[in-house]
């Protein structure tokens, strides 16, 4: 049915930067490429602040507002699959070193100036854990972590400006105790490693998967994307090929820094929905 069904997929990386990768995918069908996009956005685990205990908040922002902002801060999540476990799968009571990262923030302004509370003020702080409670079953997790696992992205890196949480003036303070946990963007978007995934195919709209609204001339009114340079423009006398299928898929994956672009792309084939659950279904069908 499909001429390219047996061909291996092919990939060409056009650009790789610290926070983004731009690549062209070929010899796969549209559904597959789209699933790839969906997995990168919503199926890769990362860590993010999930519970916040507000000890003192005299800033102008309400507690909920601060808690939400803390949740959105990207935390280093390299090798998240192995480096931390889901709290719901851990045998501890509430949280322990295997299923959570303790972070605390304690800032007060004593001078006559505006003080920025930023992600750089978040400290790794094991005292957030309740000392009486027991840890979950022992595991390998701690050895699989990079040194700054769970710390805010870009902390101690002068080239990266930190994330602003709140601004305070003289006499105000913010004191919170947070637990960062592992999760998926299907539960909350704060767990997505991607800040954006651009996805395009058929830049000349030869397949007519979209219909352009126009005043007089759609070609004059709808500028082509850069990807159009990679494909032959349609001739004016070209008949519509209703059997044609999209062939080339243009991706640009931009991460928030919790995972690198390389890790995001490589994890897709290894992790969740994609292969894992296919394999799971296989197992169940065999039974």
């Amino acid at each position: 049915m499909q001429a390219n069904a047996e061909l291996e997929p092919s990939v060409h990386i056009r650009e790789l930067k610290k926070d983004r990768v731009n690549f062209v995918l070929e010899n796969v069908d549209l559904a597959f490429a789209n699933s790839l996009r969906r997995v990168m956005m919503a199926d890769l685990p990362t860590v993010a602040i999930d519970t916040v205990e507000v000890v003192s908040n005299t800033t102008v922002l309400p507690d909920e507002f601060i808690a939400h902002r803390l949740g959105m801060i990207p935390l280093v999540s390299a090798n998240c699959d192995e480096a931390i476990r889901e709290t719901r799968e851990c045998t501890c009571d509430t949280a322990c070193e295997y299923c959570a990262i303790p972070l605390s923030l304690n800032v007060a302004c004593h001078d006559s100036r505006t003080l920025d509370i930023t992600s750089n003020h978040l400290q790794y702080d094991p005292s957030v854990f309740n000392p009486q409670q027991e840890s979950g079953a022992e595991g390998e997790e701690l050895t699989k972590r990079v040194d700054n696992f769970g710390h805010p992205v870009g902390k101690n890196d002068p080239s990266l400006p930190p994330v602003l949480i709140a601004k305070i003036r003289k006499g105000q303070e913010l004191k919170v105790r947070c637990l960062a946990k592992r999760g998926l963007a299907k539960e909350h978007a704060k767990w997505s490693p991607c800040s954006a995934v651009a996805f395009e195919y058929d830049p000349h709209n030869k397949l007519r998967h979209t219909t352009y609204w126009y005043e007089t001339d759609p070609r004059a009114e709808w500028p082509l994307s850069d990807n159009a340079r990679e494909e032959e423009p349609p001739r004016d006398d070209e008949p519509f090929d209703f059997n044609a299928k999209p062939q080339r898929f243009y991706f640009e994956v931009e991460t928030d820094g919790s995972l690198g672009p390389q890790e995001v792309v490589m994890k897709v084939s290894k992790h969740p929905s994609a292969s894992c659950h296919c394999a799971e279904s296989l197992e169940f069908i065999n039974m």
Partner: peptide, 24 residues
């Protein structure tokens, strides 16, 4: 046939992973 489709997809993903590894 569903089982076959699953193994084909896993095959494609494995091939894709190898391609990405090479490119990176």
């Amino acid at each position: 046939v569903l089982q076959q489709a699953c193994s084909k997809l896993i095959g494609t993903l494995t091939a894709l992973e190898a391609k990405f590894k090479r490119e990176f």
